[in-house]
């Protein structure tokens, strides 16, 4: 419809960009609140082990340290991706996104192994209040990461099809923001759950 009119409102479209970004920031704030509640529950229940194993006995320093550095690196590479995008290099952009996805996948893999190991030691979500809150907090973060991975792959496919244009640019920016945000949340999981746990 009315193809000719497209140029009339270029300004309008630009406005829409910043709308999306503001909306997404606000969404991130609401997601912060979600994690805040999960942290609050964890803080209240962390001593409720009901006589079972505590965090100190369950958490493995090597495992969670590896997870932390991998996620940190992926946050960095997703930043490099957005840098490549602003330079206009599609190949680099797709490359860095691919690296980010691989790092993300290995993070999720490590987390699943960690959960499985804990479960085989008898530490399950059903065991006690402490573990219930642990698995919901860390698991919710893991679900967020998995969701982000699917999303990022979807964005990569779209870049493949349509190159870097205003729409795909916006998508890369937003998914990148999401990815950095998940890294920030993980810093607190790393500190509050794991470091305080093994202390």
């Amino acid at each position: 419809m009315a193809q000719s009119a497209i140029s009339v409102d270029a300004h309008h479209e630009h406005q829409h960009d910043t709308f999306k970004l503001l909306g997404f920031w606000i969404f991130l704030v609401t997601d912060c609140i979600i994690f805040a509640c999960l942290f609050a529950v964890y803080a209240v229940l962390r001593t409720h082990t009901d006589g079972d194993l505590t965090g100190r006995e369950l958490f493995e320093v090597k495992g969670f340290t590896a997870e932390t550095f991998i996620l940190l690196a992926s946050s960095f590479t997703s930043g490099l991706a957005s840098l490549a995008m602003h330079k206009g290099s599609k190949k680099q952009l797709l490359g860095w996104l691919a690296v980010t996805v691989l790092l993300g996948l290995s993070f999720v893999g490590l987390e699943i192994t960690e959960f499985a190991n804990m479960a085989s030691e008898g530490a399950k979500i059903t065991t006690n209040g402490f573990l219930s809150s642990f698995f919901t907090l860390v698991g919710t973060h893991g679900l967020h990461v998995s969701f982000g991975l699917i999303w990022m792959i979807g964005v990569m496919v779209q870049i493949g099809r349509h190159d870097i244009d205003s729409l795909t640019k916006e998508k890369v920016t937003i998914v990148g923001l999401y990815w950095h945000f998940l890294d920030v949340v993980w810093i607190f999981i790393f500190t509050v759950v794991y470091l305080l746990g093994v202390m």
């Binding site: 910043t18 970004l21 503001l22 920031w25 704030v29 609140i33 805040a36 609050a40 803080a43 209240v44």
Partner: peptide, 27 residues
Amino acid sequence: EGEKPRFHVMALVLGAVMVFTIVAGSI
């Protein structure tokens, strides 16, 4: 980044206050 006024920064600051309230208040 972003044009002024930076509503997203305001939202983040208020969000930080709320996060603190939720966690510290609950404890």
